[in-house]
Amino acid sequence: MTPPPGITLTVCPPLTDHDLNDLFAASWPGHDDTSFARTLARSLCWIAAHRGDRLVGFVNVATDGGVHAFILDTTVHPDERRAGLGVDLVRAAADEAKSRGADWLHVDYEPHLEGFYAQCGFRPTPAGLMEL
Score class of each variant (00 low, 15 high):
89 L>A: 06
64 D>A: 10
106 H>M: 12
67 V>E: 07
19 D>H: 02
115 G>L: 10
92 A>Y: 07
47 I>G: 06
100 R>C: 12
1 M>Y: 02
30 G>V: 07
22 D>W: 00
98 K>W: 11
9 L>W: 06
68 H>R: 09
77 H>T: 08
87 V>R: 14
119 Q>D: 14
31 H>K: 02
112 H>I: 05
38 R>A: 15
42 R>C: 08
33 D>C: 02
34 T>F: 07
98 K>N: 03
51 R>G: 08
11 V>H: 11
55 L>M: 06
123 R>P: 00
102 A>S: 15
5 P>N: 10
44 L>Y: 02
87 V>A: 15
59 V>G: 06
129 L>P: 00
56 V>D: 00
82 R>F: 12
8 T>W: 01
41 A>R: 15
107 V>W: 08
41 A>V: 04
108 D>I: 04
98 K>P: 00
121 G>R: 12
102 A>E: 11
35 S>I: 01
85 L>I: 04
9 L>K: 11
5 P>V: 08
51 R>K: 04
68 H>A: 07
85 L>R: 08
94 A>E: 15
87 V>P: 01
20 L>R: 14
112 H>T: 07
65 G>P: 03
35 S>R: 09
125 T>I: 13
85 L>F: 09
45 C>K: 09
90 V>K: 05
99 S>I: 03
108 D>R: 11
77 H>Y: 07
22 D>C: 14
